[in-house]
């Protein structure tokens, strides 16, 4: 029973949307990034979340670590403006190659502010 309870607690600790809610309740400004479309071999499935605060702290993932940096740097702008943004990364994209989606896939990420 205890192992289950611990597993549940750990899940809650790491679950990006639970994290987003906690940060929000702490008064932090938060953006949520979501993988909404993938083509080819994408590292994280559709629906994966990354949450970012105004200081650049983050939790979760939208790729195996290759495009998180780019998403995080876009988050500040989205938090400031409140305007959601569609981001796309893939091998065909010069920027994406630089940020390193080396798996050869292409992903579309929707970035929005909470609130």
């Amino acid at each position: 029973m205890t192992s289950q309870t611990i597993a549940q607690a750990t899940d809650d600790q790491l679950d990006p949307l639970m994290v987003a809610e906690r940060w929000m309740l702490d008064g932090r400004e938060v953006a949520v990034a979501t993988v909404i479309e993938t083509w080819g071999s994408a590292p994280r499935p559709v629906g994966s979340h990354l949450v970012i605060d105004a200081e650049g702290s983050f939790s979760g993932s939208v790729s195996g670590g290759c495009v998180e940096g780019a998403v995080i740097s876009e988050a500040a702008g989205v938090i400031a403006s409140g305007e959601p943004k569609m981001l796309e990364f893939g091998v065909a994209d010069e920027t994406a190659w630089r940020v390193g989606l080396s798996c050869g896939g292409r992903i579309q990420v929707y970035l929005e502010r909470v609130g």
């Binding site: 949307l17 639970m18 987003a20 809610e21 929000m24 949520v32 929005e112 502010r113 909470v114 609130g115």
Partner: peptide
Amino acid sequence: MDPHLLRKLNEARR
């Protein structure tokens, strides 16, 4: 994302 809906969603998930 609507903060109120985020809370409601997490509540449903719990």
